[in-house]
Amino acid sequence: MSAPLLEIENLTVTFPTSRGPVDVVKGISFSLGRERLGIVGESGSGKSMTGRSILRLIRKPGRVTADRMTFDGIDLLSQSERQMRELRGARISMVMQDPKFSLNPVMTIGEQIGEALLTHKKLPRSELKARVLSMLEAVRINEPERVANLYPHEVSGGMGQRVMIAMMLIPEPDLLIADEPTSALDVSVQAQVLDIIDDLVTGKGMGLILISHDLNLVSRYCDRILVMNSGEIVETCKASDLNQATHPYTRGLLAAMPRMDENRDELPVLDRSTWTTGAGT
């Protein structure tokens, strides 16, 4: 493998609380080439915080520290806010969870996608339009010309998420961070959206970080998986070897998931005896 695209060493994210500072990410290290990496964990495991800290999107009073955080040779920690803005979108972009809250409600879809490109590059208007339409086609939207003139409330959730993906991919970034890109969508649409991400990412040789709580989904679309629990990476494995995962937390998560051919009478649950009285276990 060539030099890694992203290298992170000892990343810590801290938030102050009334009971003193709390580390939501506790000194994790990983590197990423031009591959598909999945980060899996429950709510509160710090997986989204990890994704956001790469883009330096953690606002005060949150604090990000790391021994090393480089992207393609650029030290992300020492970049000024202005320099970060040039990276965001153009070289690293992020697909958020819910299209309902992430699209601008008063701009048409075409304008929004075009804006993503114009922010980083000056283009004549005709070329801009052509690029927007071909991008909409790439995310498999029928009638791109009609859709480009619609407002976000006029499209469905699945289509909105595809618009988000189009917007994030149009500047042709090197790294795409997808934070639960499909959890607001139906099962049937989920597969379509992930297939599109997968095609575009492999086609352009980008790096992908897919953040999700769904182990099976991640194992289908990624090469490598990091499992996070309360701010730490508890296990790293190849996606194909997920079934041989050894860490009890990973095994617990896998076992807790109902299967299509479910015959168990009860699902095993993670031990959380601190707050339950034993029922449900």
């Binding site: 429950e42 709510s43 709580h213 769904d214 182990l215 617990g252 998560l253 807790a256 998931m257 109902p258 009860e266 699902l267 095993p268 649950v269 993670l270 959380r272 339950t276 029922a279 449900g280 276990t281």
Partner: peptide, 12 residues
């Protein structure tokens, strides 16, 4: 809910 919590509620 998360998968692990989902398992608890389904069992319940």
């Amino acid at each position: 809910l998360d998968v692990s919590v989902q398992a608890e509620i389904l069992n319940l």
